[in-house]
């Protein structure tokens, strides 16, 4: 390469290093802030000491009340970790689906995972299952919905993306209708409001147990998407071209669908429907790091984590009663999406 180009390239890498440093450090800063911010005042120093005592067996003399330690360890910590994981999962699966469908407007719920999970959760609530049962039902039905979509779309040993989109629409509509039936027949005083609140999405009830169950599958699937990230570039050139480049398109697609579905289904089963994250964050990240999925997918994980952490903090601190997370992500997400659409004139070309 010519010397001038090399210099330009060097400047760019220096700039992008700073950018990446910010992208990667930001979620950890917000995470830490989330632990001491809130109605129950605990100082940052106390947070560090509580953590050191609880996780590393340190012996700082408590300057705090017992309930403060409880709030930090059992409420704020799992909630903040979950917020980060859900944000990372929804955003990266949105980016992966957009690459696979060759369409930057696609949401991670396009294959019916949210409709299936909503139905499952509503069923759990109607049957008065304990919270773990409701989560399990939501998770299982999220997976079932996507599996039905996949098999409907599978023809002649391949799964054309157009067939996937259409099958996803059909399956979503079907599960939504089933959900309506449940809502229609649910007891008005108790169960109908429970279903409605569940659908609004919230991290309010997340505890350490939820974290223990979900952290490993979420991390495995995030790593899975990260491994596939460069191949998503090739897949986004179209199935036929990707095959001519030696890519097993069907395997990559199945990989993306499995990882994304486990991520979204886990997210939905634990904190309900949180819309507009999987669309907005990949768009925003494309502006930051460009369209290359090798950079885009990790960027969406970090930025998505930061975003949900921020929005969840707003949810619990903006008003006296907590605002459901799903409402706030939509209120912020829809106008931001509209702004990005206008700014880029509808396309990313």
């Amino acid at each position: 390469m010519a010397e001038l180009q090399k210099q330009a390239h060097f400047r760019e890498t220096k700039q992008s290093r700073v950018k990446w440093a910010i992208i990667m450090v930001l979620p950890f800063v917000i995470f830490f802030a989330s632990l001491f911010m809130g109605r129950y005042a605990v100082s940052p120093k106390e947070v560090v000491q509580i953590f050191a005592n609880y996780f590393f067996g340190a012996n700082f003399t408590p300057t705090w009340e017992d309930s403060a330690a409880k709030v930090i360890i059992q409420v704020r910590f799992p909630r903040a970790v979950m917020a980060a994981l859900v944000g990372a999962g929804l955003s990266s699966s949105g980016a992966a689906f957009q690459g696979m469908f060759q369409n930057p407007l696609v949401s991670p719920f396009i294959l019916g995972v949210s409709a299936g999970a909503s139905f499952g959760a509503a069923m759990g609530l109607v049957l008065s299952l304990p919270s773990i049962g409701v989560q399990a039902m939501a998770f299982v039905f999220g997976i079932v919905a996507v599996a039905i979509t996949y098999f409907l779309a599978h023809i002649y040993k391949s799964t054309p993306v157009l067939m996937l989109v259409l099958s996803g629409t059909v399956v979503s509509a079907f599960f939504q209708a089933l959900l309506q039936i449940l809502k229609f027949t649910a007891e008005g005083d108790e169960k109908l409001p429970a279903i409605t609140f569940w659908l609004m999405g919230s991290l309010g009830s997340v505890g350490l147990n939820d974290l223990v169950i979900s952290i490993i599958p979420i991390i495995i699937c995030l790593i899975g998407l990260w491994i596939l990230s460069w191949r998503i570039n090739v897949l986004s050139m179209g199935d036929r071209e990707a095959r001519s480049l030696g890519v097993h398109t069907e395997r990559i697609k199945v990989g993306i669908i499995i990882f994304s579905t486990v991520l979204t289904s886990t997210a939905v089963s634990i904190c309900g429907i949180i819309g507009w994250v999987g669309q907005v964050i990949p768009h925003f990240c494309r502006m930051l790091v460009g369209p290359d999925h090798k950079k885009l997918i990790p960027a969406t994980m970090f930025v998505g984590a930061s975003y949900i952490l921020i929005v969840d903090n707003l949810c619990r601190q903006l008003t006296a009663t907590e605002i459901p997370l799903g409402i706030l992500t939509a209120i912020i997400g829809a106008p931001v999406f509209a702004f990005l659409l206008r700014k880029t004139k509808g396309g990313w070309n």
Partner: peptide, 25 residues
Amino acid sequence: GIVYQEHSVAFPYTSLEVVRMGRTP
């Protein structure tokens, strides 16, 4: 190697990035 008819893509990869995809196999 197969050169299909050119078509537009959804994402603005650089041309170098597209050429480099040839190393996939």
